[in-house]
């Protein structure tokens, strides 16, 4: 067993086990803890998948930001000492059954595909466009720069034979998502702040 495989199994076990623990735990704070473990393990898997920038983003935004926000929410809305979510055994049983079935379907499908031979071959050999863009992320794992370039709309990693980019640049979503974040910020600030009432609005269409 190679070191990479060993690390994969370690992090995969942590990710799956913690995810399961999130479902099985009744206490919200412990759920948050297990969620952190799971998301952290996923970040490690990102590092294993040679996506170091993404792994760091996952740690910074998800684990360090979103989960802190969630825990903050738990603390602000806790009525009792520790918020317990009671799940009846019947619900748990039903959830386990449906979830198990879903997992079975997904797993059997995913494991049934021979990616290297069937899909990659079919797509790689026969599709002109796919062939041109047949550059998986380079193995150095230094994806920060290509990602940054893709965000400003340049794709040096996917250049066709004629020198034109075969994959889209992501300038538009990169810019427009900032508008979205601004709007979300306005909305969240509105909902969270106390109502300031100066005077009732009486004048319409003034």
């Amino acid at each position: 067993m190679t070191l990479e495989a060993l690390l994969f199994y370690l992090f995969a076990a942590i990710a799956c086990g913690s995810a399961l623990a999130v479902v099985l735990t009744d206490n919200v704070v412990r759920m948050a803890f297990w969620l952190v473990m799971s998301l952290g393990a996923v970040a490690s898997l990102f590092f294993l998948l040679e996506a170091d920038f993404l792994g760091a983003t996952q740690l910074l935004i998800y684990v360090g930001g979103t989960v802190v926000l969630l825990v903050f929410g738990v603390m602000l809305t806790a009525t009792g000492p520790y918020v317990q979510i009671k799940t009846t055994p019947a619900e748990m049983f039903l959830g386990a059954g449906v979830g198990g079935l879903l997992l079975l379907v997904l797993a059997s499908t995913v494991m049934g595909i021979n990616w290297e031979n069937d899909v990659a071959h079919a797509l790689g050999a026969e599709s002109e466009a796919a062939l041109a863009a047949d550059t998986t992320v380079d193995q150095s794992g230094t994806t920060g720069r290509p990602l940054g370039l893709a965000f400003v709309g340049v794709r040096p990693d996917a250049v066709g034979p004629d020198g034109a980019a075969t994959r889209p640049g992501y300038l538009l979503p990169f810019e427009i998502v900032s508008v979205h974040l601004l709007v979300v910020l306005i909305g969240a600030a509105y909902l969270a702040r106390a109502k300031r009432r100066v005077e009732p609005a009486t004048d319409l269409l003034s």
């Binding site: 996506a51 920038f53 863009a133 998986t136």
Partner: peptide, 11 residues
């Protein structure tokens, strides 16, 4: 992104 032709787009 790592294993198929999806490449950087996945990331």
């Amino acid at each position: 992104a790592r294993y198929t032709v999806l490449g950087l787009d996945g990331q």
